[in-house]
């Protein structure tokens, strides 16, 4: 048996532990799943609008604008928590915010928006969650930033927090340029 062969267990062991160590110290959230749709074209869809029984045609709505897309529902408590940030964005930034009302009762959704204020320029109804699947959504609330060419530039799963809010603000400016 050659001497250097005897070192193999130690070398493998060290490599594995170094990887574990790296994974422990880097800031990571094991539940964050990178979006497969980042930097891809958005999935277009047609449905009805929440406010008037008109059609909602995504290609018309998005039409060469930078858009913030937010999946929400009135039954989702974290959506309520993040709502103030979405309102802030709509007040401060000049951009279109599209809401997608996920698996909700339209009546309740309208009441919810009346009570909390409506930052959305239009809200599409996703009654059975098909649009969400097409957008790779797995947990609401989810927020996307789509640029003027219809490319998804950013995606966030879960409620918008202060930190994410700041990040979104910066990103919007960046995408607009």
């Amino acid at each position: 048996m050659k001497n250097h062969l005897l070192k193999i267990p130690f070398i493998f062991f060290s490599i594995i532990l170094l990887i574990f160590f790296y994974l422990l110290i880097i800031e990571r959230n094991p539940t964050d799943i990178p979006s497969a749709l980042l930097n891809k074209k958005v999935q277009q869809f047609e449905t009805s609008s929440l406010f008037n029984s008109q059609k909602f045609n995504s290609s018309q709505e998005f039409d060469n604008n930078v858009v913030l897309v937010n999946f929400f529902a009135s039954w989702c408590k974290p959506c309520r928590d993040e709502h103030k940030f979405i309102k802030k964005i709509s007040e401060k930034k000049n951009l279109k915010i599209i809401g997608i009302n996920y698996k909700d009762n339209p009546k309740k959704a309208i009441e919810w928006l009346e009570k909390l204020g409506n930052p959305y320029s239009n809200v599409a109804i996703d009654r059975n969650g098909e649009i969400a699947i097409d957008w790779g959504v797995y947990g609401i609330p989810e927020t996307f930033i789509v640029d003027a060419k219809g490319i998804i530039k950013f995606r966030h799963v879960g409620p918008i927090t202060k930190k994410i809010y700041k990040k979104i603000n910066l990103l919007i400016d960046e995408v607009k340029q």
Partner: peptide, 19 residues
């Protein structure tokens, strides 16, 4: 991190000894 360091000590010592 504690368990990792502990494992590293145990494993490092024993495997170097083995080598």
């Amino acid at each position: 991190i504690y368990i990792l360091v502990f494992t590293a000590l145990l494993g490092g010592y024993s495997l170097i000894l083995f080598a």
